[in-house]
Amino acid sequence: MTNTDVSHTNRQTLVRAARELSDSVDLLSFADPVTHVYNPLSYARKSHEAYLGWVGEDVKVVLLGMNPGPWGMAQTGVPFGEVAAVRDWLQIDQPVDKPPIEHEKRPVEGFQCQRSEVSGRRLWGLFRDQFETPDAFFENHFVLNYCPLVFMESSARNRTPDKLPAEEREKLTAVCDAHLLTVIRTLDPDHLVGVGVYAEACLKRVVQIEGCRATVTRILHPSPASPASNNDWAGKVTKQLKSAGVW
């Protein structure tokens, strides 16, 4: 099998897995204080699958985030998908539909969204500065989120998956773990990098299930909510990746 064939097969597997994940999470229900749930794998499927088209044939590093941000993947369907980074660097600009029930304070405007997600700008900005081109980055790297859903309360406040009630969280975890296992088996990377503590914990749990050969490490989350991230985040993360032998 040629490298092109491997890349094509990997893409087909990831597309199928993403569709299965999307269908599975749509069957779950979430109670108050969650009032709105967005699934960008569904309404932004075209751009998400365009993103999956970047997957290379020799992925050595998989970076995992927690779940979409309201101004990132919720708009573009791409993990950490800050609009400008996705459109201008990844060259993805696909039509994005609307979630079935939209919160008036968190409208989905797709690539017309004027808000910029800081986490995505920092993450993809680092990769752009280090690798210059998407081809060079995706040759050995891939980025995904553990959970594809955005959870919001009536006030439009974001609610992260770790804050869900135990019963809801367990059902969501079962579905997301299964998807993550599929990705790891498909790409067989050397390194699994959790973007933040939550993602690292998810990777460690799934690796124990799978007996995966990849090493698990963590980098500082790029969110501006973390004080440590607001002072040379890129420099700190570059040092972390080099120290862990990822770069």
Score class of each variant (00 low, 15 high):
Val6Phe: 01
Val6Trp: 01
Ser7Asn: 04
Asn10Ala: 05
Leu14Cys: 05
Ala18Phe: 04
Glu20Leu: 12
Leu21Trp: 01
Ser22Val: 03
Ser22Pro: 04
Val25Trp: 10
Leu27Phe: 03
Leu28Val: 13
Ser29Trp: 04
Ala31Tyr: 06
Asp32Val: 11
Val34Met: 05
His36Trp: 14
Asn39Ile: 05
Asn39Arg: 07
Pro40Leu: 08
Tyr43Ala: 05
Tyr43Asp: 08
Arg45Glu: 13
Leu52Ser: 07
Leu52Asp: 12
Gly56Ile: 00
Val61Lys: 10
Leu64Gln: 02
Leu64Cys: 02
Trp71Glu: 13
Gly72Cys: 04
Thr76Leu: 03
Phe80Asn: 10
Ala84Leu: 05
Arg87His: 08
Leu90Pro: 14
Asp93Leu: 03
Pro95Asn: 09
Lys98Asn: 15
Glu102Arg: 09
Lys105Ile: 06
Lys105Thr: 10
Pro107Met: 14
Gly110Asp: 14
Phe111Met: 06
Cys113Pro: 12
Gln114Thr: 15
Val118Glu: 10
Ser119Arg: 12
Gly120Tyr: 08
Arg121Leu: 04
Leu123Phe: 15
Gly125Met: 11
Gly125Asn: 13
Leu126Gln: 15
Leu126Ile: 01
Asp129Leu: 07
Asp135Asn: 11
Glu139Ser: 12
Asn140Phe: 01
Cys147Gly: 06
Phe151Trp: 11
Ser154Leu: 13
Ser155His: 15
Ala156Thr: 14
Ala156Glu: 15
Ala156Arg: 10
Arg157Cys: 09
Asn158Pro: 04
Asn158Tyr: 14
Thr160Ala: 14
Pro161His: 08
Asp162Asn: 13
Leu164Tyr: 08
Glu167Ile: 10
Glu168Met: 10
Glu168Gly: 09
Leu172Asp: 00
Val175Leu: 01
Ala178Thr: 08
Thr182Trp: 00
His191Thr: 00
Gly196Ile: 00
Ala199Tyr: 01
Ala199Asp: 01
Ile209Gly: 06
Ile209Thr: 09
Glu210Ile: 00
Gly211Ala: 02
Ala214Lys: 12
Thr217Asp: 02
Arg218Gln: 11
Ile219Ala: 05
His221Val: 07
Ser223Ala: 13
Pro227Thr: 03
Ala228Trp: 04
Ser229Tyr: 12
Asp232Ile: 03
Lys236Ala: 14
Gln240Lys: 11
Lys242Met: 07
Lys242Leu: 09
Ser243Ala: 15
Ala244Gln: 13
